[in-house]
Design a protein around this nucleic acid. Structure first.
Lengths: 316, 316
DNA sequence: CGTGACGACGTGCATTTGCACATTAGCCGA
DNA sequence: TCGGCTAATGTGCAAATGCACGTCGTCACG
């Protein structure tokens, strides 16, 4: 520990140098000390943390991990939040903020943004600055559920987002799930639906979450699209995750199951073909699902937290 | 405001320079930019507060004075800085630090903090340790001015503070001043405004500055809310100070003037009712205003300097 | 299409800074 | 009192930095 008198001297010199913008020589003259001594006092002040130089990152990020992810999976961009927070809700919000800032940076007037709603994308949208404006077409990329689970009410959320950004909403007027593959095909052929899906295929950016298929928490179960037993069976047979309600295996290939063809929405191949797909996902339990999506090439931009990022790299 | 991408570049360069201890030349080589450009980026980073250099002063306190203040006015806590500094700017910063340390100690996760912006509270906020995190709701307690005087742009500062602490911001979406009392009442009745004010009434802590009504320096004049002549007249008729733009007399009672009812924000009575109101104020010219606020019971915690504290006790 | 204003950028040089090494002061035991 | 040790201080120089000035590109306006 450092004596109070010395602390004061250090603070004084530091203030003259860093706040008063004096040169070391001038300070030396003013305090009647040698220039080298000032130099050493400044060094001591930094070492003892009397002056702290700190950098305000947009949000603190784990840059090395990001670089590794980009390199390993050929991403355009990776964002890995340095998770100082212990509270998972706080962490979610911060990652949502990180993604929101990124989106704010890449959205351009006249562009279009395809959205697959889930709890994570919902948070990203709320994290967009209230005063941010962009003339963007917001495209609903998956059909709607009839029941009104707040965070899955795709068309309402599409409108809300469009309104927030100051742009237009384009709906996908279709149920999310058809009774069988044939019916789904028919629905996809309807003019309004076909048109909406076509717009999605031409989107500039897609924002999307990643699901693991955990029977306890999965959106499939909460939305009543599948039950726990089904999911367990999928996982046993090699499924690792889902994006836009499409289930895939560890290589990121569409998982052969009766569910995928019944979903009306953007497909994995279509996501892969988009110029920029932004995925937001966190939690180590999602690492396998994220790794699968990365291997499959569905993602260009990944936004996650440090711990999860590390896990994903472990798996790769 | 600064774009997210630029913010990132600035942070990156700053990190390489200040944390990575690289020379400007090396950074230039690494990023394939000219050395001068790095120099300019660093300057910009400092100017835009992307790098902040903060100095930890040994904060000596005048404990006897503090005790007297606590006893005399029934405070929960008094903090009086032993002002070794002669430079008033330095003194301000030190007191801001003192207050920031106190706040860091009393904020709790899940709590809420109401803020009335002014030059002093602005400094307190910048003095909060950047790595300090608390899941606190930050409530804007007074309306916003249309013009963008940096230190009074309440909603921007509310967000900034919330982001710094890692919590949420809750805005008071309302002008600060209405044309007349009736209009102010109407504005206060708007759902969004009413809700925001209600949240403020339930805040755990309020952070607030104290103004004297000096025509030469008062925020009222600088913000264009009143002119010098008005203030002089108020003082002649017994007004001594203001908190949250509400003017009061030497007993701390609301001062009857046409201005108070036109302000949209927390009132003196509401401040009094809060469990913990932290006021930060310094300068002997503010002594009368501080004494009034203390007599009126608006304050639970006072943070000031030794000289001012002594003056206040003289007046009591 | 020209022109002029403006901002971003880089060159060259004076100043400032960091550091290795030399020097001195202070301290202690013989 | 002296030698020997350590820590603090100062000298000289090479590296790093800051800055004035000139150039280039861009945009608006005539």
């Amino acid at each position: 520990m450092i004596s109070a008198a010395r602390h004061e001297l250090l603070a004084k010199v530091a203030a003259m140098y860093y706040e008063g913008e004096m040169t070391q020589g001038d300070i030396a003259a003013a305090l009647d000390l040698s220039r080298v001594k000032i130099h050493r006092l400044l060094k001591e002040a930094r070492d003892a943390q009397v002056v702290r130089i700190l950098i305000d990152w947009p949000l603190k990020r784990a840059l090395e991990l990001e670089a590794k992810l980009v390199e390993r999976f050929g991403l355009e961009r990776a964002l890995a939040l340095q998770s100082g927070a212990t509270d998972p809700a706080l962490l979610r919000r911060q990652i949502a903020q990180l993604a929101a800032r990124y989106l704010e940076g890449v959205l351009v007037d006249g562009g279009s943004l395809a959205i697959c709603f889930g709890s994570t994308t919902y948070e990203v949208i709320s994290a967009i600055r209230p005063d941010y404006q962009a003339d963007v077409k917001v495209l609903q990329a998956t059909g709607s559920l009839s029941q009104a689970l707040k965070e899955f009410d795709s068309s309402a959320l599409t409108r809300q987002l469009a309104q927030k950004l100051g742009g237009d909403a384009r709906y996908l007027s279709s149920p999310l799930l058809a009774d069988n593959a044939e019916a789904a095909a028919v629905i996809r052929e309807q003019a309004l639906v076909r048109q909406a899906l076509k717009r999605v295929r031409r989107a500039d950016i897609a924002l999307i979450g990643i699901g693991d298929l955990d029977p306890a928490t999965s959106v499939f179960v909460r939305a009543g699209v599948a039950d726990g037993a089904q999911l367990r069976s999928f996982r046993e047979r090699g499924a690792v995750g889902d994006m836009a309600w499409q289930i895939y295996d560890r290589a990121g290939r569409p998982f052969p199951c009766e569910l995928n063809p019944r979903i009306i929405g953007v497909t994995l191949d279509e996501l892969r073909a988009l110029p920029r797909t932004v995925a937001v996902a966190l939690g180590v339990n999602k690492a396998a699902a994220i790794a699968g999506a990365l291997r499959g090439g569905m993602i260009n931009v990944l936004c996650t937290d440090e711990t999860t990022a590390a896990c994903v790299l472990e798996l790769a």
